[in-house]
Amino acid sequence: MSGRGQVSFRDIVKMHGEFAALRGVSFDIKPGEFFALLGPSGSGKSTTLRSLAGLDAPTAGRVFIDDKDVTFTDARDRDIAMVFQSYALYPHMTVAENIAFPLEMAKLPKAKIGPAVQDAARKVKIEHLLDRKPGQLSGGQQQRCALARAIVRKARLFLLDEPLSNLDAKLRLETRAELKKLQRSLGVTAVYVTHDQEEAMTLADRMAVFMAGEIQQVGTPADVFARPNSIDIAGFIGNPPMNLIPAHYADGDVLIAGHRLKTTAAIPGEREVIVGLRPGSLHIAADGLKARVDLIEDLGDTAVLDLDCDGTSIRMRVGDHDVPREGDTICVTARPQDIHLFDPATRKRL
């Protein structure tokens, strides 16, 4: 299996008339990797997936799969399987017929189709539903059927376009875990489009974060979380998102609301910066930023505090054991290594 399913995007541009849906996108996916395309709607992640699938032709640039230029290859000749957001199950066929369809198109002998369908259905636990029509299935079962149809062919690439977005919250969490296990056990390369950063964080080996038709960062979820390389990504990743506060920087320190915080930055001189602070990296201390607690959102095991720090609002996450009361004034601080600095002009990480 290894060595199959390697993808390279080279300077892909996609124009819709005057509008640039993709403005030069390049990235690589390693064989067997679970790769997420993450971004808000309209950022170009779905267009990227469609270009990879061959459903849309890029305006410029090249797509390689396993070192072969497939930019001009028909969708049906790319050996790619895909799970659509709406599942796109064929409503007039039974589950078994749906799963068998790609094999039939590949002209597999009938004797081999039956066992393959059984096998795929077993992997997603829908063997008992094979005679049903999609209309008789629940949302979760439909989703599994779409998965089975995608994995049955053992394609070299497995594309998933927001496959969990039509499931209810509880089912989404269960399926998420199963999806990861399934991908691991198949050893297939998966490309996963989502706007849900939590999904990307939990599922992906690596991810590409899209903003306005461009990739802003590629890396492991931990990397992207720990070192977001722009203000936009910092504001997009993490829940609640990172606090972004305009501040004054001088020789390694930043001045927020009259309080000086140490950073690990080694840039000499003074300048204006945007300081990024993860809500979870803030903690209550004896000395620090003075802040009044405006509102407490209790999440059970943790709580999110809305703080007013001399006119600047900051959100922080605290454990359930040290929740202050609304109206209290507290002091908060962060470790130097947890303070992110961004350039307000370029919006890039400093």
Partner: peptide, 15 residues
């Protein structure tokens, strides 16, 4: 493939 004068021109032709 015959066009092959550069990726941009080729892609437009492909479209």
């Amino acid at each position: 493939a015959a066009a092959g004068t550069g990726s941009e021109a080729a892609s437009t032709d492909y479209g």
